[in-house]
Nucleic acid binder design. Structure first.
Lengths: 346, 346
DNA sequence: ATCTGCGTGTACAACGTTGTAATCTGCGAT
DNA sequence: ATCGCAGATTACAACGTTGTACACGCAGAT
């Protein structure tokens, strides 16, 4: 089993030429059924496995795609990665995961197709990239972007309607009778498409409801992490008139916020309702369980891999970039239940 | 920038032979300083990047290692993966992540070095593999195992002392005055090394303290997931004499247990203390925050990558497999605070 | 002036695969 | 019997890289 078996070896053992074996392996049609059977037998016996390097060298393909995410430890991306790996398998592709640490340079490098030469394409989840970073020429390899607005139609692109989702989440809080809705996760600068879109949705909902939009209720966060969420929540709770609901731009922020509320002796959802974004498993099993916007991750993965695979197949053909929108859902759990109904739960 | 630049192109532009460029790229010594400088300049100008496929085809290396984990969405592995990626970068290697879904066949395939031919080596975190599965011949590629007992010294191997860690965790609960300590996460069958070791540690501690060891207090769990933890906790709480402390074999189990306790109106840590294992971030930000055994993940990653890199470098040389033990720490948080001290916190 | 030797640089082959084009076989049609 | 033809198989080259072996030029030694 140890030493590599090559086409050469199989060919010798089967008494045919290398190319015939290659044809069998690749399921080409110009092979007589009986030959095919015999060769296949030898392949199985010897345990032949094609050398991907040689294959790529010849054909330009490796069957490996890269998934570039800001942070793998962020549950959302771990779940997304799992979904992408599963989808890639269905396309007979392997996934190489890159962690960009949300650094602009790293994301840019991936978008340009640098990184490993081994990859056929990239699925990139940009956090730090601005629109102008990507508007330029596409790089060496096919790229599919995830989760942002369409970057000047330069790349294929899978996203959810962040504005609508944020609006729905905020509207839900208003519908449960909350009046002072805060937002956690605002980010300034051009590099923060996601945060910006969610903030827009939040504002739209607040505006539609005729509620006052107070600058003091919009809390910034540099990272979408629990510590940032906790810090922001502490600031909000320290206000003279604290909010009675908080819409967090990610579940990690929300978990931090829950934590801060707990420490401050503020009850969730009785005193303040909390809604997150991403619907990660830790939110589902938090105490209280977290209401959250749930993007359809499997569908995102399916679309992204399909688009990338298509782009790879038809290399050269100049298909126009596609923008695919994927659904989401607001999953209501304890953290935003109307104050009256929840008393009994405890 | 689009079309690939090859050694050929650089050589032509610099007026030297292909091999000389290759020598510059690989930092060989048979190149005159001035030539080196000139060639390097052209390389930079043209943006040459070596084709890894061709390189491997020739030299047998890709600079890509695989990390095979049971489940990427499990926070522990996501954090571990992040650490491994960081370490690999320091060795100029890229990481390809495989998800085995804790399936024996998939783990076995990785251990045998199947999967992609592109990889130079594998770091495998086995869950379902039994000792005998691995005792056989090592496969095609170097393999480093994580987190289990030493498999018959066939492979390099990085682990923490699971028995001691579990013993410490349990002893900690006993030290805070708990009497009836339950365990969640027991698994039967030969394929469950981790669970088995942690159960041993738990038993040792209970035994040492002279406490009665009750079979009813040991709850099994097929997966280390929140739902399983919650189900187990519900069963324990339904006992005529429920436990006053629970040692969970993973943080995910513990989070489920916390959840179940909350739903049952049982207070943590006042009524029942909970300790987890893995020290994942969601445990740290849970309510209450989770006491947990914290393996030194960065060190695990460092050792594993170093061992693998060494094994790859010295291919052929028959260095004996190494067993490296890495430290851990019990991080005490709210979920196991002595009942008296915590009253004020709420 | 020739030889030796060292410091540089180069030609060639090979890694395992696949696309192209050529060859071979057998069979029906002429 | 010969030709043509289609199906089946094969030879060859090439992908980009690196190890081996050799060639070149120039110094100092003979």
């Amino acid at each position: 089993m140890g030493g590599r078996v090559t086409l050469q070896d199989v060919a010798a053992a089967a008494g045919v030429s290398i190319k015939t074996v290659s044809n069998v392996v690749n399921d080409f049609d110009r092979v007589a059924p009986e030959t095919r059977l015999r060769v296949q037998g030898v392949i199985d016996d010897l345990g032949y496995r094609p050398n991907l390097s040689a294959r790529q060298l010849r054909s330009g393909r490796t069957g490996v795609i890269a998934l570039a995410v800001p942070d793998l430890a962020a549950r959302y991306f771990a779940e997304l990665a799992t979904a992408v790996i599963a989808q890639a398998r269905r396309h007979a592709m392997t996934v190489l995961i890159e962690v960009t640490d949300a650094e602009r340079s790293a994301e840019l490098a991936m978008a340009r197709g640098l990184g490993s030469t081994l990859i056929d394409g990239v699925i990139l989840s940009p956090l730090a990239l601005s629109q102008s970073d990507l508007s330029g020429k596409p790089g060496r390899v096919p790229v599919v972007l995830l989760g942002e607005r369409d970057y000047a139609h330069t790349f294929d692109h899978v996203l959810i309607d962040n504005v609508a989702a944020a609006r729905d989440a905020t509207a839900h809080l208003l519908a449960t009778g909350r009046k002072r809705i805060a937002a956690i996760g605002a980010q300034s600068g051009p590099s923060s498409a996601t945060a910006h879109l969610r903030l827009c949705g939040y504002r739209e909902a607040v505006h539609t409801a005729g509620a006052p939009e107070l600058a003091e209720l919009v809390a910034p966060a540099t990272h979408f992490s629990p510590p940032e969420g906790a810090a922001a929540m502490r600031r909000l709770l320290a206000l003279p008139e604290p909010p009675d609901a908080v819409f967090c731009f990610s579940d990690m922020l929300a978990l931090g916020a829950l934590r801060a509320a707990h420490e401050a002796g503020v009850r969730v959802p009785q005193d303040v309702a909390v809604v997150g974004f991403d619907d990660t498993e830790e939110g589902r099993y938090g105490v209280p369980s977290l209401t959250s916007v749930s993007p359809d991750k499997p569908e995102i993965a399916r679309q992204a891999v399909a688009l990338l695979a298509d782009r790879i197949e038809s290399a050269g053909s100049q298909r126009k970039p596609v923008r695919t929108e994927v659904g989401y859902e607001l999953v209501v759990r304890e953290s935003s239940a109307p104050a009256t109904e929840t008393e009994g739960t405890l």
